[in-house]
Design a protein around this nucleic acid. Sequence first.
RNA 1: GGGGGGAUGCCCGAGUGGUUAAAGGGGGCAGACUGUAAAUCUGUUGCCAAAGGCUACGUUGGUUCAAAUCCAACUCUCCCCA
Length: 410
Amino acid sequence: MEHSVTVEQQFEIIKRGVLDIVPEEELLAKLKKSHQTGKPLRIKLGIDPTASDIHIGFAVVLRKMRQFQDMGHQVILIVGDFTASIGDPSGKSETRPMLSAEQIRTNAETFASQFWLILDREKTTVTFNGDWLGKMSFADVVRETSRVTVARILERDDFQNRLSEGRPVGLHELLYPIAQAIDSVEVQADVEVGGSDQRFNILMGRDLQEANGMEAQVGLFLPILPGIDGVQKMSKSLGNYVAVTDEPNDMFGKIMSIPDDVMADYYTLCTDVGTDEIEAIKAGIASGSVHPMDAKKRLAREIVTIYHSAQAGVDAQAEFERVFSSREVPLDMPEINLPESELENGSIRLTRLIAIAEMASSSSEARRLIQSGAVSIDGEKITDVMGSITPIDGQTLRVGKLKFARLRMI
RNA sequence: GGGGGGAUGCCCGAGUGGUUAAAGGGGGCAGACUGUAAAUCUGUUGCCAAAGGCUACGUUGGUUCAAAUCCAACUCUCCCCA
């Protein structure tokens, strides 16, 4: 333990951005005990390998784990390779597809390379729950499931909703919380961290640990970070996410597009900006002394700084202002190589050009974009769907607000 | 094991023989406005070598000049009874 940090200080750091700690006194007691004995707490986090990239919503939980590590505690990541074959029903309105073993492995590997952007590798143990769940006998399963009542499992909202809507609920899905709880028993977790949607699963871990004669883990719940649409939870499948590996300009831009009312959440959960300062920003916006856009630029800069560098943050802001405030062309843009062979009498159909540049998902979409006035070349709008242009090396093709490309004749 | 529903585009949901690439809503995309915010308004929303063609209403097969619509089998699913 780093004795320079008192238990009370540890507790304060841990509480930042946290929605709920169940039960708070137990966490305090565990921290004290760890401080006295010098034995680190075992902090558990279950990773769902159905996703493949770490986004800043998931990073909220990882950052919390990192705080524990910085105070000397041990983080145990459990890759849910086995549980992924069940599919976490939490908050879901339908059964999740089961993943193949290969898919899970690939995802887990991608994850692994990204964890260390946030976590301290030295203080992290990575395990796969297939190692123990896969080896349980039916008798083991019966024994563990006997500790939980059906009513208890079915009382959850997600199951209730699905049942009342006449949607299917697979029997195996009822086992998910139990599987996750067995993980807690297996790794002897002191604390399990998760999003608020993990409440049920994590509390189940407490029950099962007690039933197995060990001290129950403490549940630490973090708010779910809304996606950049500001409404739904951030997730890759909804496309409303900011990946930790996003390029600085993209990252900055995505943050700028979040609705104002989730800005404070982003500040608390995704940055290290002090709580007092966040309050001051909120107050400033409320009183009109701080322009929300400036507050958001600061936010975007902070986040880019975390995953790239302070300089990258400054540069990304400059680029953002250049393109969106001054309406100039970006400094960097992808180039599209246009072979002579594509030209007919020196010109090319615009729809074809957009297709080559992969700036629309289909040529039908390219037509629509042209029709709606979203396409321009060197700032000149083109609206003729059948139109051809005579491309010149170095021209800028713009499709919609965000997509730019420079033409290169080859 | 018995009986009764249901499966439509990204999602919800209308449609019960031709006028249906399929109403309406949500979401998405684009345009205007703006702060790449919100709100609002407008357009658009299967694909292609594009005044034409192709593919689509759980799957397969059938009836018909014509099927999302009728028939058969199958698959999945929900409810009631046991």
